[in-house]
Simulated scan of single mutants.
Amino acid sequence: MFGEKYVQRTPKSKKLFEEARKYLPGGVSYAIRFFEPYPFYVSRAEGRKVWDIDGNAYTDYWMGHGALLMGHRYPPVIEAIKDQLNLLPHVGFSHEWEVKLAKQIVEMVESIELVRFTNSGTEAAMYSIRLARAYTGKRLIGKFEGGWHGGYDALHIAVSPPYKLPGSLGITEGALKDTVILPYNDLDGVREIVKGLELAAIIVEPVLGAGGFIPSDPEFLKGLRELCDE
């Protein structure tokens, strides 16, 4: 991905990656963090910038998988974290902040009625599919070409071309037999494929991430909503 100039500027990252390969599969703790010839290793961050262990600065468009909306080390966030660490860092019990956050989400997003917190996008997608099947009594799930919904086996297909193949080794045909692959931004194509099928749900990204950052047409999403209501 990067050339000789990158290698010359990142000798410490190269050395650390060689060490990482001894203890982490592929040298990384998450597959998407790897790129050729090796990833750089971040040592500090501030605002929109991160610095690697070799001292190189980068503008961060990733922002903690999208979680750092205010940038790195935003002072009010840092102070709030410090205050909470002195009170209740982590417990396995219910607490008032989960209620406050759920209430705020429901009040901010009109379509959300109830909130269930999960540990990852994979877990959220898995429970969503299970809930849809339990509620409808149906088993088929519609999933779009180029869509990425985490590591849940039933959705880990058609992430990248060729779209008929699983996104990883180790995924069985049985895990995918109830997944229906659909064309993105093609409402007529979707209608043709799902005709006569009983789907429990259709899962969709408003903007395809892994599929190339392709935005959906507003009429496409509106049509999907109407199709599901039918």
Rank of each mutant, 00 (worst) to 15 (best):
F2E: 15
E4K: 14
Y6W: 12
T10P: 01
K14I: 00
K14A: 13
E19I: 11
E19A: 12
L24Q: 13
G26I: 07
V28E: 06
Y30W: 14
A31G: 01
I32Q: 11
I32A: 11
R33V: 00
P37Y: 06
P39T: 07
V42H: 05
A45V: 10
G47L: 10
K49C: 04
V50R: 05
V50P: 03
V50M: 08
I53T: 06
I53N: 07
T59R: 12
M63P: 02
H65C: 13
L68V: 00
L69E: 12
H72C: 06
H72T: 05
Y74T: 04
P76T: 08
E79M: 12
D83E: 15
N86S: 12
N86K: 15
L88V: 05
H90K: 13
V91W: 04
G92C: 01
F93E: 13
S94Y: 07
E96I: 12
W97R: 14
V99C: 00
Q104R: 15
I105M: 08
V106N: 00
V106A: 03
E107H: 06
E110R: 13
S111W: 04
E113H: 14
E113R: 15
L114D: 12
R116M: 09
F117D: 09
T118K: 12
G121I: 01
G121D: 11
T122V: 04
A124I: 04
M126Q: 15
Y135Q: 11
Y135D: 09
T136F: 05
G137S: 10
G137M: 11
G142K: 02
G142I: 01
F144W: 02
G147K: 00
V159N: 02
L165V: 06
G167S: 08
S168A: 15
G170W: 10
I171Y: 03
E173I: 02
A175I: 07
K177L: 00
D178K: 05
D178P: 01
I181Y: 02
L182G: 02
L187Q: 11
L187R: 09
D188N: 14
R191L: 13
E192P: 00
E198P: 01
A200P: 02
A201R: 03
I202D: 03
E205R: 10
E205N: 15
P206W: 07
P206A: 12
L208Q: 08
L208A: 04
P215G: 10
P218I: 06
E219L: 13
R225P: 00
C228R: 10
D229H: 13
